[in-house]
Design a protein around this nucleic acid. Structure first.
Lengths: 190, 190
DNA sequence: GTCTATACCCTGATAGAC
DNA sequence: GTCTATCAGGGTATAGAC
């Protein structure tokens, strides 16, 4: 999991994995007949662990649904800070590296994106009337993921937080507008 | 250039390149001593060719600066359509694949992002009073790139235009808000 | 289930004639 | 400048004893 994240799939050799795990080839191949089986297991783990590994830590002590969205984005910022801006989202990196992967792999990558998007969509639903009623929440949630992935990509390339912060700041501006618009509509109605 | 774009850097072998180019090893290595020299040449070509290869075709017949931004995003959509959503931005893909590249490579990747962002920033400057005066134009331009890269990444993973269209649609909503806010301010002043 | 040794292939890069 | 042949190394995966 760590190696695929740090080096990518192709650049990680079985030998690297054996050394990092302190395992022998026979044992590894007994459990995972091919390298791709290992990738599939890793992707499944990300998928099933999204709450325990990502969302719950990010949302510790944050209850406001909109703030939860930005708390999640802040967590990716922390990862960038902790790695001197060499962090990359493991799913995003693998998604771009594996152009034409096995359908199984591609569907797992898509499922991971879907799980992330659904978590955000849940926040937006909880936000209720604070978001304009005609807003497509799924679309907006997907846009949050877009912002994170695009922001992380640029931050790592520039080795600078500036572009990530810029992306989040602009997204915040967009949310401020949405909330103000929803609020204005509510005043008009009442 | 085509192979690095379609398959990525690591997955493209010198043999692939020789076959595609109809060249022999000796000739290639005479001009490009290492594979990385080839990558550097490709990245330089993207950088110097951004106007002729990307911007001018995208902006053919489009003069409104804000529409130029969305015309550029539409061009990436066309690329997704033309490739059944297997298209990936070559710079973005290489940026994520090459985690810890030679400083020369990383700077070239960053320079490509900068050139793209500067082109958008130019449009925003041309838009003048249509964008609120306190807007950080560089930041907003960077956010447009964020949207494109994040949108393309998801579209390819899902093999669907939906997420890309969602991202562009949301960005359009943000721009509509910005233009409306700038317009309201102008009315108030006059 | 786990170990070591190794098969077999493809990699980037080179040698040296032309 | 271009060609063919090849090197040395590392890749995934396997064989077969234990």
């Amino acid at each position: 999991m760590r190696l695929f994240w740090e080096k990518g799939y192709g650049a990680t050799s079985i030998a690297d994995i054996l050394q990092a795990a302190g395992a022998n080839a026979g044992s590894l191949y007994y459990c995972f007949p091919t390298k791709q089986d290992l990738l599939i297991a890793v992707l499944r783990r990300y998928q099933t662990g999204i709450h325990a590994m990502l969302l719950e830590p990010a949302w510790q002590g944050v209850s406001d649904p909109v703030e939860r969205i930005f708390a999640l984005l802040a967590r990716y910022r922390d990862a960038l800070v902790a790695t001197d801006c060499t962090y990359g989202c493991p799913i995003g990196s693998l998604a771009l590296e594996l152009h034409e992967p096995d359908p199984v792999v591609r569907k797992l990558l898509a499922a991971n994106f879907n799980a992330w998007t659904s978590a955000i969509e849940g926040c937006l639903k909880q936000a209720g009337v604070r978001i304009p009623r005609n807003t497509n929440l799924r679309e907006l949630a997907s846009f949050v993921l877009t912002t994170m992935e695009g922001g992380v990509m640029q931050a790592r390339t520039h080795r600078s937080l500036a572009t990530y912060d810029a992306a989040v700041h602009q997204l915040r501006g967009y949310f401020s507008h949405l909330e103000a618009a929803a609020s204005a509509t509510r005043r008009k109605v009442s």
